[in-house]
Amino acid sequence: MTKILVTVKRIPDPDENLKFANGGLDLSSVKWVPNAFDEYAVETALRLAEDVGSKKTKHAEIIVLSICPAKQRQHMTQFLAMGGDRGVIVDANDADYDTAAIAKMIAKVAQDEGVDMVITGKLSQDNEGNQVGQRVAALLGWPQACFAAEVDWDQGSNSLKVAREVDDGVETKQVPLPALVTVDLRVVLPTSVRNGINPADHKFTDGPRLASLRGITMAKRKKVKTVTPADLGVESAGGEKTTTINKPAARAAGQMVGSVEELVEKLATEAKVL
C-alpha cells in the first residue's frame, strides 16, 4: 500500500502572549498546541487515503512523525486520533536542532519507512522558517510541490497534480511519486483534495477534522515507535545558533493630524520621508 509520511510539530499556543526572559523565550508555563499547518497536512493525507464510500477501505497508510521529547507527545496522540495509522517519535528537544538537522532526521525516517509521499505544513507558526519541506525533498532527491492549495492524486500514473499558491496566483504542477508536498491553508477547503476514487465533487467537512472521542481512545492503542537522532545518523545539532530573542520595541503612540496640509508638513519636516 502507498505510504504517506506526515511531519508534525508542537508549538507554543500562538493565541497566547509570549513571555521573554534572559534573551530568549520563556516557555516554562506555555501551552503547547499542534502547528496549524501540520493539522492541514494530516487532513490532506487523510483525504488522500480515505474511501468515502467505504470506511473499511483505505488507499494509503499514514505515518505521523514528530521530533519532540518522547514524554510530551499529546500532539502525536491528537494526530493519531484524527486518523493517522501509526507514529514515529524522534526523542529530542526540536528547538535544540537547526532546520538542516531536522530535515536530515525526517529524510532518514522517510527512507527507512520506504514512503511514497512526504506531506508537511508549509511552515510552523512559531518561527515561520518555511525550510524543512524543501530541504527534505533535496536530501531525498525527490520532486517537491510547495504551498499546495489543491492536491489531485492520479493513482494510475502514480503522480500528484498540485495547485500551488504563488505570488501571482495559482500554479499547477505535476509531480511523479515519490514526492514531497507542503500544504497551505486552502488545502482544507471541502473539495481541495482528490484521490481519484472518491467522487470528484465530494465535499469534505471544511477545515481539518477534530479528534473525536472514539479516535482519541483508539489512538492510545496505535503503535508509536521511538528513535533517537543518533539512530537516524544525526549526531550534531547543526550550525545555526540563536543568539538572542527580544521583544520588539513598543510602537510609539500615533498622532492625530488636523488636515492634509498638516500631514504633508509633518511628513516632510518631522518624519523626513517626503
Binding site: 499529546q74 491528537q78 477534530l210 479528534a211 472521542l213 482519541i216 481512545t217 492510545k220
Partner: peptide, 16 residues
C-alpha cells in the same frame, strides 16, 4: 482506561 491526555484532547476538540 482514561488519562488526562484523553480528557484534554477531547475538550480541545469540543472547545474548537
Amino acid at each position: 482506561e482514561h488519562t488526562r491526555e484523553i480528557f484534554d484532547l477531547w475538550l480541545r476538540s469540543a472547545a474548537k
